[in-house]
Design a protein around this nucleic acid. Structure first.
Lengths: 221, 221, 221, 221
DNA sequence: AATGAATGAGCATTCATTCAT
DNA sequence: TATGAATGAATGCTCATTCAT
């Protein structure tokens, strides 16, 4: 279809990201990927060695970009608030720029292939280490594994869940297209536009929410 | 395989829940479901009208149980803290009792079939209405759609994300089985046991975290 | 195509024998087998587990029938001539009744799959043992491995080669069909008919030839 | 892989001979031939016009060498024994020097392509003529088509069958490699070494065998 | 209710070949 | 000559479903 300026390998990669995000790895046919990428099916095997090879590339890319986002979280001696705000901002930016990539990389159910499981495990272990370091620098006792695990999860829980829901909601309304009537409004709410202004507010709310939550958890017990 | 005391229909349902949770709808074959349930393949079509029928039943069941959990959240005149604590408790209980069911119902990527999309949409709309009501009772301005949407998402973001991660982590370590070495410990952390004690702490932390976050958001602006 | 009285499994087996004999295992497509057998392609996998499974079944059957043919070779105390004539007769009968089966079983190039190689090896070892016993009963020194190996090979060399050549010749003239002109006769020879009369003569000639050859080899040295 | 001193065309030819011999024409991929020859895939089409072109070249070469072997069979007035011994020697030498070439040329199942069938037919017709001439010079009645056909087939039956079996046996033991235990010895036989000494004995045995068989056939009736 | 054989569309992948360089 | 990316027609096999019993 689209024969943009990208090379065939990139076109396959990008097409697969979008399709996997919307219908899951097993729900997408190689032919669809090739068609969307505007290349011959055989090229998919030529460049990636098969459908699984494309997924592997996507997972790696998604985690790499994600770790870049959580690596640069302000000077380690900066005040707690600044560091948290920075982390939240980075994560919002990451998710906004890599919606579908993150969808695939994080949500793809772990295919029961040892190599794929090792890959996931490697990235999860890495994530744990970085977040543990971050929170201990913020004053959380590194030996309080329950709190540490709690806060570690909270970080991307909030973000991933927001984008997950937004993604699903948009997917439904898009795909359903014309055949779908607007959902009946049961409240005086208008559909939100997920634009810069929205994410400015979102950043404010989330930083505030998270910071107060974090403070209360650290101070507790 | 297992020919427990349940009837064939229930056995199919339960087998499908587990398989869909671990490998996604498209990644599971009807034969597997039938084998795991210990019934003939044709029974699946007989009772549910096909693979999609099983998914429909699962989604319905998962949302129904979920709404039960968020419906009974203490007397509407009870203090904010009590109501939030109650909500958090209900949700934790729901997820702990229905791990795989929730996994399938909430995470299954919306199959591009109108009927399936309508189903999801119906439940999402319902959820919005209930949460809007809940938060407006807690003092959040029902016309502040950004804040409302933010808090609404936050509720299950935290829970679903925690169980998501736990699920994936356990899946990886289980499936990988003997071939997997334990992930190298980069911090003095021991593997957590997700038992009653853990979820007591988790409930404490989450309620505190959420309550403080909520307060700051309501007071802000 | 043909929906004879045989059951689907037998029809697949027989269709595969003919096709493999004429074009080799790798040169035949599963679809062709299914079409020739008049069954759905999926039945091939259902009954034999795949293309390779069909080959396995054919190889086993061909060797089993072959060993039946070389097992009953007259009373072990009968005179040498009678025993040789009996062996030759049995082999001629075997090849005439199982032309294509033998073609596939004996000529299929050993697929490089351990299981397939083991199968071939098992049958070859068995054949060696039976022939060694037969010739030692006829007076050949069992320790003269060169002579033993020579005579052992000679037995089916003559037969297999005859039927091989006949098969190839008939294949060429058949397939080439109308488009082929008759080969130019360079000698006053008419095409032979491979009927009962022919094989009566053939049996006579071969027994005589083989017996005299055998006698000379045994007496030598 | 191997970039010996031969030119690319020869390297392709030789690589194809080995591969076709072991796995059959249809069982070999052009990529393998190119890789084994150490050339680019496109060169195969460049030099031979395609996979079939390579086979054509091999078949022609194999028959040409074969006819050279049966052409020079001692002075036509030499005694019967000398001529037979000479023929046997020539054929043994031919097969020993051109094992794989003969394997492909003679055993490749006739591809159902008119051109390929014509090729085979041409060579077979030629072979018949030469052998008829040879045997009539030895005293066999040229009009006794049954005997003539019998002796004609016998000539290479014995040789081709021996090398066929040897080839298959060696292939199996080689490929199976380490994973294969030696076949259980059921007789006090040691594995034969197919060296010069072996083929000296083989020549003796075969000449004797064949000569006595031939004599008995000529004298009979 | 239950079975297992049967169906045909569809799956990822591989193939020999060609083309632009 | 030589290369490696590109092609499209297959290839063996699997799938959810249905049917006769």
């Amino acid at each position: 279809m689209k024969k943009s300026d990208e090379n065939p390998k990139e076109r396959i990669f990008n097409a697969a990201v979008v399709l996997f995000a919307h219908r899951g790895f097993a729900g997408v046919r190689t032919r669809e990927i090739a068609e969307k990428a505007g290349v011959n099916i055989a090229m998919l095997n030529y460049y990636f060695g098969g459908k699984l090879g494309v997924l592997r590339a996507i997972i790696n890319e998604s985690y790499e970009k994600f770790y870049q986002a959580i690596t640069d979280v302000a000077n380690k001696d900066a005040p707690r608030e600044e560091r948290v705000r920075c982390l939240v901002k980075n994560l919002i930016d990451f998710y906004r720029s890599n919606r579908e990539l993150a969808m695939v990389g994080f949500n793809t159910l772990p295919i029961d292939i040892p190599e794929m499981l090792d890959l996931k495990m490697k990235w999860i272990t890495e994530y744990r280490a970085r977040m543990n370091k971050f929170f201990s620098q913020l004053g959380l006792d590194i030996h309080d594994t329950v709190k540490m695990s709690f806060m570690r999860g909270m970080v991307c829980a909030i973000l991933s869940s927001h984008f997950n829901m937004r993604f699903i909601y948009e997917h439904i309304t898009q795909v359903a297209g014309g055949s779908k009537r607007q959902p009946k409004k049961t409240t005086p709410e208008v559909d939100l536009k997920y634009d810069d202004a929205y994410y400015k507010s979102f950043h404010e709310l989330l930083s505030t929410f998270y910071l107060n939550g974090l403070n209360s958890v650290i101070e507790k017990g």
